[in-house]
């Protein structure tokens, strides 16, 4: 392949990298809008049924949610460190940081699983039992919680797979521009940001 063809349709590598990153950021903007629908639904429910919203949120496991916030933030730090390491020309350190981020992501899912299991036992899952809810709006809050965190968990899973892919790719680790790792990290940070807003929307709303 001729040198000028390698980055086609771009003239050089720097511009191709610029474009890749911009493309990723624009994709993330669309992800933000996707979750926006969930947040808008939560906003509407809160404005219309404020007391029910708070009462239902009280059923959530605040401490598990808080722990998960800390886990995800730490995982984000690891992803950022991986980018840093790849840029510094330390592929092994980058791989280790990615692995840590990835394992913390798995830990997040595990905690989430424990939470879901507890909620299932307590009959909070949609359609299992609703006897101890006062009114349908509280059930709706729980349903919205499952949809919102479920959609988020899907994104966490995708993020974990992407990080695994980046960690396994020797070329990605040795790329001093950290293009692949950088873009995967961007995605992972955004998943983190979404959770940062899910946390007060769902968990903190229930604290009395």
């Amino acid at each position: 392949m001729a040198e000028e063809e390698r980055f086609a349709p771009f003239a050089d590598a720097a511009r191709a990298r610029d474009a890749d990153r911009l493309g990723m950021l624009i994709f993330l903007a669309s992800e933000i809008m996707l979750f926006g629908g969930i947040f808008a639904a939560a906003l509407a429910l809160r404005l219309e049924h404020g007391p029910d919203y708070a009462a239902a949120a009280g059923h959530l496991k605040l401490w598990l949610g808080t722990a998960n916030t800390a886990i995800l933030l730490t995982s984000s730090l690891m992803a950022a460190l991986a980018v840093e390491a790849a840029r510094a020309g330390a592929p092994r350190r980058a791989a280790r940081a990615l692995l840590a981020a990835l394992l913390l992501g798995c830990a997040f899912l595990a905690v989430k699983g424990v939470e879901y299991a507890g909620e299932y036992r307590e009959g909070l899952m949609p359609g299992t039992a609703t006897a101890h809810f006062d009114g349908p709006a509280q059930t709706l809050f729980m349903n919205l919680y499952f949809v919102g965190t479920g959609l988020h968990a899907v994104h966490v899973t995708i993020g974990i797979l992407l990080m695994a892919m980046a960690a396994l790719s020797q070329r990605a680790r040795q790329d001093r521009n950290a293009m692949l790792i950088g873009n995967v990290a961007l995605y992972w940070h955004l998943v983190d940001v979404v959770w940062l807003f899910l946390y007060p929307t769902l968990y903190l709303a229930g604290v009395r």
Binding site: R21, L22, L25, I26, L28, A29, S30, E31, I32, M33, G36, L73, S76, L77, A79, A80, V83, A185, L186, H189, L190, D192, V193, L196
Partner: peptide, 25 residues
């Protein structure tokens, strides 16, 4: 997270704008 982890601090205007657009909308 945006400023430090996502490196918006060292980005140029365009990237910051792209990142911000979703939140503004």
């Amino acid at each position: 997270v945006l400023w430090f982890f996502m490196e918006m601090r060292s980005e140029r205007g365009l990237a910051r704008l792209a990142m911000l657009a979703g939140f503004v909308w």
